[in-house]
Design a protein around this nucleic acid. Structure first.
Lengths: 209, 209, 209, 209
DNA sequence: GATGAATGAGGATTCATTCAT
DNA sequence: AATGAATGAATCCTCATTCAT
């Protein structure tokens, strides 16, 4: 039996999970190693043995969060109709953000820290290439079907779509307070999704048909 | 002489300014009252005398930041042409975010904290009404001129525009790392603004003209 | 009343005294700030407020210890007879070391640390000049009286005298174990002093008289 | 094959060597088992298997250091001329201390700890008898040759000689700072040795010749 | 209003030591 | 003999907050 490795692996996972929850709840500075260790059911010193420093632990949590999303994206199957596929992409993204606010929070924290932790991670580890490929394919298919405008940049498209979904969720609290729209209510989520789809369709589709 | 009040006022301002810088640089948990006091050139105890608690100090900083933006928006004069006005609105917003990253950071922090501080502030203090009024007027003028679609919701429009600008700046660091687009470079800022204007025009304008 | 300064001064003294005892008992690494604070009857954080770091606290303790000895040396009055004065100097030094083992211990610790702390202290603060002056005077008087050899270097003389006394006390524990001579017994202290005086006399005095 | 024992023996040596360096560099409290294990290229737990506790490891390091010196002393061959032999003894001792500061440091540490570790070691293990014998022989030969005073106590002589050499090296750092004499410079080492020889000759030799 | 002194609680990190394999 | 995993207790240092002047 590879029992050393098994034990280590399980411990690592437990710590990572506990750390993610703690970082999301309290931010990087606000999170304490004590809480993380307690939640993971292990000794504080063991957390250090596995991750060396709080900062490096956060980095691993962040990488894991990115990887989870990218894995899901890679598995995702789009409908044949390019417009339906675009709609699905909007729905998938908004729903993922809504159901995984942890991801947004972690990335939000990381942006507050100017990306210092992510910088230390290789782009391969983040699996970005796959995503761009997916959007490129979608646009190509739409253009070939005579439905989408030609010449659109896939990163621009993804950036816009992501922006619309992102702020809807990540800015939810302040928006709810200032503008009275609370996306955490299901009906408002639907309404917002409809708007996002509308915006994206009009941006991507040919206006002359 | 209003010298007491003047001095007090100046001290208050100094503390608020120092606090904003500190909160932006280190987050809510990471900021220290010691640093704030030192940067403001006053005694730590005096900070407490003026703002009672760290949390309340953050709240005031946040309110001030919102007020600054809303004041600027209220003063803003749009061109007569509705399309030009929409373009200007996109430009104004993106530029404001780019030039005042503190605002984004503060609101980002507040969202990480689920809006708990902002909740305690009255909507009047935040000056939201004015903004909605501005967007409503813009849409009305566009519709009357036969350029914009009828029936658009001003909050939806503002929300979309704000999303596009927001994420472009607030997510800049992670986006730069993952997708290689760095909006802090002037030429990339211009390119992004062009995309945002394109998205917003196509969303708001009638497709049949 | 200069009550701020008075309070501060008293606190400082209490901490320094407690720190000296702790450093002597447990060494630099072995000493804990917790113990020092407790012994001084103050809060741990206050120790930091006054001395910033453990290392700097040790430095001050060391300076104080040197100063105490140098002050005593400066006050010391020697007999007129140069030989008696030399004897007295041996007695004074050995006795000081025996009665103030803390001084030896602190300097011993500092030597283990290669003098890193003392380096940061100015020579004036250490009051070295006075000591050399004293030895120079003693030698001069001896030479003039036709009792001492001419041309002796005062630093060499002090160095030798100090060595003989120093090792007798600082090496006492290992010497007691290995050679069975324990200077902490009064009669052995007397015997050792007699040897030291004999060594020093023969070194300093003219052999031809 | 004695391969087990050989391996064990080599591991033991490696640990002892690593431990000596670590204790000398950081003191008893400052040394860490982690560092020692790493430097020895073995596992921390193995260090415990071999030496049980940090304290016992230090004890063995100390014993080894004493043994090395005593072995060297036993092997040493003195010139026939008693005065030259005395000179040689001074030179040998000062040089040994200068070239093996580890020994001084270890004994210094041990004295700071009041000899608690050395007490647990038998005098035979320390090889003291040989040293006394050597000095006794030297004095006897000098007396027989009509050069040395009769009735000198060998322990007193060794104690004085050792003191002069010891403090010159063990107190080198603080002396360099306070009195500007740095024995780590070769020319100053020579000068100091000359003084020590002068002191010892005058102490031991008959004054009437 | 303004200051320097003082506190208590906590938080990151380390370390001697033990356990399981 | 040798290893990697795990622990509990410290330890240094920081910080929000209060007190006395």
């Amino acid at each position: 039996m590879a029992s050393y490795e098994e034990r280590t692996g399980r411990t690592r996972e437990a710590i990572l999970a506990a750390a993610e929850a703690e970082f999301v709840a309290n931010g990087l500075a606000g999170a304490t190693m004590e809480n993380i260790a307690k939640a993971a059911g292990v000794n504080k010193a063991l957390v250090y043995r596995h991750f060396e420093r709080k900062e490096l632990l956060f980095r691993q949590v962040l990488v894991q969060a990115y990887r989870r999303l990218r894995n899901l994206e890679a598995e995702f199957r789009f409908p044949d109709d390019p417009v339906a596929a675009l709609d699905e992409m909007c729905g998938f993204t908004l729903r993922y953000y809504l159901n995984n606010p942890d991801f947004l929070t972690l990335v939000g924290i990381e942006n507050l820290h100017r990306g210092e932790n992510l910088k230390a991670v290789s782009r391969e580890e983040l699996g970005v290439a796959t995503l761009i490929e997916i959007v490129t394919n979608l646009l190509d298919r739409g253009v070939k079907a005579g439905l989408f405008r030609a010449g659109l940049d896939p990163v621009d498209v993804w950036h816009s779509l992501s922006s619309l979904c992102w702020f809807s969720v990540a800015g939810a609290y302040t928006v709810a307070i200032t503008f009275g729209r609370d996306i955490h209510k299901p009906e408002e989520a639907e309404a917002r999704l409809a708007v996002i789809r509308d915006v994206m369709r009009r941006y991507v589709m040919r206006a002359d048909i």
